[in-house]
Design a protein around this nucleic acid. Structure first.
Length: 423
RNA sequence: GGAGAGUUGGCAGAGUGGUCGAUUGCGGCAGUCUUGAAAACUGUUGUCUGUCAUAGGACCGGGGGUUCGAAUCCCUCACUCUCCGCCA
């Protein structure tokens, strides 16, 4: 949620930044500001009324104390009009507040200056590319064939137990999965992140805090009896640790890492290129989260990008980094870098990480602030990134490392899985 | 699941209708004393909103109600604790 102060004081800048997403937002900003003015006026009226009533109530208290019953009764008569007004003024103010809020939450975050213009993924900018694209021979198989041949993952079994998109990993497939999770967690720990095991279901407040609700309601599984949501990413529970919290400036930046399964309904997004591990309803991911001051946040974003790079390089995977354009960026993000690995048999780039700075957009919803050295509270900046999402990493490893004799395990992973070859 | 007791400021813990935004203790901060520190003493110490600045408004788990006036009374929801039951 954008800060009203910012919209009021830097209207032109806010509009021009939002423009990168969609020019229609400029008029929404105007509507928000108009509502804001109305709501503030209504509130003032209500408070003036309240102040008068408070004065009289105090006087009555004084009179009662001194035994001046009759004078007190006389004063009570005076309050009837104030009381009637109070009800109306309060309702009006509340209603305007609600309208304002409903409008405000429809505005996405303002893109950073360096975010490229553009509407579609084609307009994302590749800022870095690493590694040679492996040249596989013609007999090379896509991962969905490899996992069957080597009995690593059983999709049909998952379909039987649950439904499409819930694979069953087994044997060396399961071992790869666990090894990757441990590898990613260890690497994050070495980089100074505190490990968190969060709840995998969250309440609606948490869903709102990080921006999944009300915007992406349909994306999450909802356990309706208990009104809880299965997390689409560990970002949600971990970032919500800091909801309604005032931190000390010295505590920042806070670095957390957490593993979790991620549940995504992906309604309506099934199609030709979601075969195999490319898109699932349940997948595993290790997520890094940082809570920072505005001064720190962009430097930390770079640090996170470097961390993700080091993971991919240790796994010997060719990758590229994209700076997302305004139209492709998530609702809550101010700047996002996507990481894609090259899946050689599919001859496709697969997104394996999305690393973003949300500036104060989530913090405003979370009410997560820090007290600076002067004792003033400011909203923190929040950041997060996948480090990394497992299924596509596994797909890439399987495809790129296949040989006639089996699949070679990347060196860094061997200690984590206990074998160097899947055959 | 059954029965009971609670939820107050960073923490502990008073407060049952009117100068309570809230006694007190601890902690924190500042000062006195000291070469320095501790102790002791003194002062200070929540958040949001609002104003150029004052003033004003709101917040005692959440929501609603009664009242001129609610931390205090009523309703409702959530959570915590204790005992019993069940259970990985």
């Amino acid at each position: 949620m954008l800060q009203l102060n910012y919209l009021r004081e830097q209207t032109a800048e806010a509009k021009s930044r939002l423009n990168k997403r969609n020019p229609n937002f400029a008029s929404v900003v105007d509507e928000v500001l108009a509502l804001d003015e109305k709501a503030r006026a209504a509130k003032k009226e209500m408070e003036t009324n309240q102040a008068e009533a408070n004065v009289i109530a105090k006087q009555i208290g004084e009179l009662m104390k001194n035994g001046k019953r009759e004078e007190a009764e006389a004063l009570k008569q005076q309050t009837s009009q104030l009381k009637a007004d109070a009800k109306l003024l309060e309702d009006k103010s509340k209603q305007l507040d609600e309208e304002l809020f409903a409008k405000l939450v429809t505005l996405p975050n303002t893109p950073n200056e360096i975010v490229p213009e553009g509407k579609t993924p084609e307009e994302n900018v590749t800022v870095y590319q690493y590694g040679d694209l492996p040249a596989l021979d013609k007999a090379a198989l896509p991962h969905w064939d490899l996992i069957t041949n080597y009995n690593l993952i059983d999709f049909e079994l998952g379909t039987k137990i649950t439904g499409a998109g819930f694979p069953v990993y087994r044997g060396k497939g399961a071992r790869m999965q666990r090894g990757l999770v441990n590898f990613f967690l260890d690497e994050a720990m070495k980089a100074g992140y505190e490990e968190i095991v969060p709840p995998f279901l969250v309440n609606a407040e948490s869903g709102f805090g990080t921006g999944q609700l009300p915007d992406k309601e349909g994306q999450m599984y909802h356990a309706q009896v208990d009104d809880l949501y299965l997390i689409p990413t560990a970002e949600v529970p971990i970032t919500n640790i800091y909801r309604d919290v005032i931190l000390k400036e010295e505590e920042l930046p806070i670095k957390n890492v957490g593993y979790s399964p991620c549940f995504r309904r992906e309604a309506g997004s099934w199609g030709a290129h979601v075969r195999g591990l490319n898109r699932l309803h349940q997948f595993e991911k290790v997520e890094i989260v940082q809570i920072a001051t505005p001064e720190q946040s962009y430097q930390l974003l770079d640090e996170m990008v470097k961390h993700v790079q080091s993971l991919l390089e240790k796994l010997e995977l060719p990758y590229r980094i994209l700076r997302l354009c305004g139209g492709d960026m998530g609702f809550t993000s101010a700047l996002t870098y996507d990481f894609e690995t090259y899946s050689a048999a599919q001859q496709r780039w697969l997104e394996v990480s999305s690393t973003s700075n949300f500036e104060s957009f989530q913090a405003n919803r979370l009410k997560c602030r820090y007290k600076n050295k002067e004792g003033k509270n400011h909203l923190v900046h929040t950041l997060n990134g996948s480090a990394l999402a497992l299924p596509r990493i596994l797909a890439t490893i399987l495809e790129n490392n296949q040989t006639p004799n089996g699949i070679k395990v990347p060196k860094a992973l061997i200690p984590y899985v206990g074998f160097d070859m899947i055959s």
